[in-house]
Amino acid sequence: MRSVGIIGVGAYVPEKKLTNYDLEKMVETNDEWIVSRTGIKERRIAAKEEAASDLAVKASKRALKQAGITADQLDLIIVATVTPDMVFPATACLVQNQLGATKAATFDLSAACTGFIYGITTATQFIKTGVYQHALVIGVDCLSRIVDWEDRNTCILFGDGAGAAVLGPVEDGYGLLSFDLGGNGEGGDLLKVEAGGSRLPASELTVANKQHMIAMNGREVFKFAVRVMSKSTQKALDHAGLEKEDIDFFIPHQANIRIIESAMKRFGLPREKVVVNIDKYGNMSSASIPVALNEAIEQERIKKGDTLVLCGFGGGLTWGSTVIKWSMDQVE
């Protein structure tokens, strides 16, 4: 089967910044605590009129431009999100319409913070088999819309953003070499928004009980994340027949710097190989990994032939890692 890789990347974050000092005025917290416990200094918040599809379209246009293809060449659009514009139609349909990607199949994918990894892995299979030629995968979330702004345990952590990747056939031996995906519904209660679906449809009571907002057990999620990151990364490396010493860049989901540090120590990877931008954006759920990837490309850190590991984890519980041999030349 042919090799498939990322041939264009783009990102978009909303303009409005919310700093830790702003948060001090909203809940009982302080900059020192947030920085030392999470590594986050500020995050972006979508404007009132901005929804997930708006962020997604902006990121996608940049990715398409970098890939050097037009929207009508896309066969597939996958939007990984837990904050779609609306229950249905799928945000992927809204994005398709805005981009004019008329021949693309469209669906949304729900894997929380692991969504982008699930998305690129899924898209890759369609192209590998030769059924499709080009796919657009977007990780986008506006968690600011579902966060309880009175809960200091969660509201300090999250931000809004979008990252997109165009996938297509690449040179033999390059692209996505392997993946590891996983889920464990037993831990579903650790991180959830429980109302608004068919079990607890919206009612005055669900609103009053704040059941449309994120509920989280921070400590258990922390432990899960540290445990699963090294395990999943090792599995993906094994599938690719590589060792951890082969990794040039590790791009983890940006949930908490302390999770990243703890996991990297456990796994034994030096800090300089790890791409971190959590200080500027906080946890953008499915957008975190592609935004960090985009930043590393823009900074010309990643070059053709480098071995990358992308590793995500989040609600579900879900997790996933991919090993990529980077196939793009550095962009000017």
Partner: peptide
Amino acid sequence: ADSLDVVDLILNLEQEFDLDQIEE
């Protein structure tokens, strides 16, 4: 140690001493 150092320490104890997951 801060609260997350303790969590990190517990994770490392589990690994180092081959223990079952330590409950909250």
